[in-house]
Design a protein around this nucleic acid. Structure first.
Lengths: 242, 242
DNA sequence: ACAAAAGTGTTATCCTTACACCCATGT
DNA sequence: ACATGGGTGTAAGGATAACACTTTTGT
């Protein structure tokens, strides 16, 4: 999507309000892993407001499909892993004063759109895993900038998005053994040490090296490949793939 | 709520459509336990359609509060255990031909309400536990009958409600150790055998008597009381409470 | 005394945890 | 040869599962 005139976009969006579901949104907690850090994609508006990538549901679109589309529109990837983890429906989950801050000029010129934006929204949270190297962040019509943030050093987030991220991380940790963490977040070939670092980052605690290796290998999900000679003065590790 | 004239109710409901959230509903999987059977409350319409008790969300009402209200309106209980387990958002989750069947006369006389009813709904599923003996099923304005059904002998359900129940049971089983099963579903005082039967019913498999007793007592959640002399030719069991 | 069900005990097995040992590699 | 990290080994502790034994009750 090219960057277009803001007012044109607003007008077009307003005209299409009857094609999307009212009062419901989707927020995506998109995880990636780079440089031993677990990261979440956030948008950063001109007014210094940070938020999760999100969007709305078309009338003829499944909830899951809408989440897939939102991910695609944002990071250019098709068919990534998605997991619906919770629906947030408190009346006061969105602080309207933050909306005013978000788009002052906007509200005056387009009252219908403004009213829509200030109406009540229930949002369904999806978490997803994307490979950091495959992501090409797509521009949106507002020229909003999107950036990866370490989950342990998040800036202040708009509305209840902090809460949404925390619930996503909690879900991630509790279902760690059943989610495709490694196959989604690691490069095609990786060492056991890299995989362990990923798990340690997610759980935010150290794991025993020997036990971790045994546990992972026992699951029979990995193929062992040639050794990686990266030139350290030590035994070379095997490379693995899923 | 008294039973009122159907058309009066429809008119009143239609006039209040702007006070409830569009396109979103709640469906409740209300569990109880009686006579060694795990039961779910279903409504039964005149047209032989069975469905989960559900409802809508007021504009100024939290999603969780709406679920609490729906439970209260249905079984007359306040503050029961509630757990949001999934949000169902497929476009075709509701088969409109079943709606036609549901309320034929209705649709002709009130086109606005009919259109609303046939619009798209995303529904959030809540599961809850109620004590069978405390429930007093409340009449609704349609004079719908509500009945308990064993989860293992459910009739055909409307829309995707079968799917919703299955997801609820799956959630129930996977979180068995963290949910207040016993304290919500059993009478105030009960024997270990009764509690074991409850667990066996939920998991749909036999458990070892000795191991079950140790596991439960190890958690230190139960108080042991006097023995129950019910007159069988065998050792009398202790009574327990939470 | 006996049957039936409740309470407790015993044992094998598995999983987890902690840590030790040896191996491969580049300096 | 030696330091460094990688792969594997081992032993203790706890949880689980299967089943045996003992106790209490009414007939």
């Amino acid at each position: 999507m090219d960057k277009i005139n803001f007012n044109d976009f607003a007008q077009q969006f307003e005209q299409n309000l009857d094609k999307i579901l009212n009062n419901h949104s989707i927020d995506c907690v998109i995880f990636s892993y780079e440089n031993t850090e677990l990261k979440v994609l956030l948008s950063h508006s001109n007014n210094d407001l940070n938020m999760l990538p999100g969007g709305f549901i078309l009338l003829d679109e499944d909830l899951d499909s809408a989440a897939q589309r939102i991910i695609r529109e944002r990071v250019g990837l098709e068919g990534v892993f998605l997991n619906q983890f919770y629906t947030f429906g408190a009346v006061n989950r969105r602080d309207l004063s933050e909306i005013n801050e978000m788009e002052m000029s906007f509200l005056n010129s387009r009252p219908k759109l403004a009213a829509w934006h200030k109406s009540r929204f229930i949002t369904t949270g999806y978490l997803s895993f994307v490979n950091f190297d495959k992501v090409i962040i797509q521009p949106d019509p507002f020229g909003t900038s999107y950036k990866w943030h370490s989950v342990y050093k998040l800036p202040k987030l708009i509305f209840d998005h902090q809460n949404i991220v925390e619930k996503a991380i909690k879900t991630l940790r509790s279902q760690l053994d059943y989610l495709p963490i490694g196959s989604s977040l690691l490069p095609p070939k990786f060492t056991m040490n890299e995989m362990q670092s990923l798990y340690e980052t997610i759980l935010n605690k150290k794991l025993d090296r020997g036990n971790f290796q045994r546990k992972i290998l026992k699951s029979k999900l990995l193929n062992r490949h040639e050794k990686l000679m990266k030139g350290g003065a030590h035994k070379a590790p095997y490379l693995y793939s899923f």
